[in-house]
Amino acid sequence: MSVRKQEVPPRPLRVGDLVAAYSRGLGEWTVAQIVRLDADSQTAAVLELDWSGSEPSCVADLGDVAPLRLTHHSWNGALSFCNHTWVLPRSHKVVGAMPLFHDEPANCWASGWNLGDQLARQRRWNSGVRGDPVVAWKAAYTGETVNEFLSQSTAPRSEVTQLTIRDIDSLDCAQLVQRFPRLAWLHLQGRLGLLSAAGELNRLVSLQGIRIIDLFGMTREDRLQPQCVAKLESVDLYSIPAEYASAMHSVWRPEIPAGTYVSILRARKPEWVEENRSNPLREWDGREQISATTYKRAVAQYKTTRNAILQVFVAEPADIQLTRAEEIGRAYGEAFNRLDRRSVFIETVEREELFAALDHIVNEAEARYGPGLEGARDSLISGVEFVRDW
């Protein structure tokens, strides 16, 4: 049975409304106008205004306001105008309404509201500052560097409110919370990595937004609880354990009318994680232009190629290895020629990923049999290049 789309935003919102929000970049409140609402895409076209100041309670507190025009970098006077999800974040409020400053459709889309960011950049530009400032409240790490930092005996970084960690193989959330206790925005991206003690994230009482991608180990008991993280206004989860996804969906979907955006996609069963941990093409699963059948055939061909290359270094003498590697490369290229002819799907990104998959195979072979296989790598690539149509 199809799910009926909402006809109006979950939080009351109308065309012409002025929305106010506090901007960390400005250190003040700012405002924007709702120009359009689209029920099909469930988006709001939002026009930022050139205003900041103390928290307003009504339109009269704003005085004279005008749309924000951007001249920084290469904007050339364009309006700061963009489509956002129409879930009005719980930290934002409607202070009244005014006649529309602009009524054309917006032609850009943003993943978060982030009101005030463009105004802060414009004001820096107007003052002669051409680069973005380094701010103490933002921090970014790789999984390796953050684990090294967490292992040290240092004071908590309480000034950090926005944290991004990529390429995570494993991460202890208890240590993370202890070292970064005042996080408002947390972005964690793994490589089918493991999050332990994920329930400890409930101690982040200032948390407003969380994004978790390609990380596992979380259970139903680790779900974030509204009574613990009462300010949470964005839950963005992609490729996470099915049990955790179900629990988070159950808890946070009722919070959407209060101003929490919820997107939970690609809930994974444990067997999928085990099967795909060493699969460099796993990101193709569910990609828009790649059907399930094409994905399965692509993975099967990758596995065939991997097994053939590893077998070469087990069974073939050194003087035969380069020739066999080139033959295997040709077979790989021809197989994906056939797949692409059936349903054109290999574009620039997919082409790079197919070559990266071959690198993955050779790197695995070097880890098993020792370094010095660059000749085999070159022969493998040469075979692909000789025949590929993609």
Results as ranks from 00 to 15, higher is better:
Q208P: 03
S343A: 15
E327N: 13
D378A: 09
R220L: 00
E353M: 13
S41W: 11
E353G: 03
M98T: 10
T304K: 10
G190A: 11
N114L: 04
D103V: 04
F386I: 04
Q321S: 01
R220K: 12
W125H: 13
N126P: 00
T305E: 02
L204Q: 09
R14F: 02
H249D: 11
L354A: 10
G16E: 10
S343H: 12
V160G: 01
P270I: 14
A184L: 06
R268M: 15
F216K: 01
R121S: 11
V312M: 03
E28T: 01
V387Q: 00
I34L: 06
I290L: 06
Q118Y: 11
V15N: 04
A20N: 03
S170E: 14
L204I: 06
R121V: 05
E347D: 12
V312T: 14
A140Y: 04
T145P: 01
V35F: 08
T85S: 12
I346L: 08
V312C: 13
S263D: 15
A39T: 12
E326A: 10
A136S: 11
Y261H: 11
P270H: 06
V15A: 06
R157W: 11
S246L: 05
S41V: 07
L354P: 05
P10S: 05
L49S: 04
A155T: 14
A110Q: 13
G375D: 05
V87C: 05
E350P: 02
A97V: 00
R191A: 08
I346M: 08
A315L: 11
P99C: 00
P226G: 06
W252V: 07
N114C: 08
H72W: 08
V146W: 00
D50C: 10
L26P: 12
D38K: 07
S170M: 04
D40T: 13
L88S: 00
V262S: 06
S151Y: 02
L62G: 03
I381R: 11
G27A: 12
L37C: 13
L201I: 08
W272H: 14
G53S: 04
F336K: 07
R220F: 01
G199N: 07
G77R: 01
K5R: 15
A155S: 09
W29G: 05
Q321W: 07
F345A: 11
R130A: 05
E55R: 15
S57K: 15
A325Y: 03
V87E: 05
H187W: 15
N126S: 12
P317Q: 10
D61S: 07
I320K: 01
V262A: 05
A197E: 07
C108V: 07
D40F: 05
R182L: 09
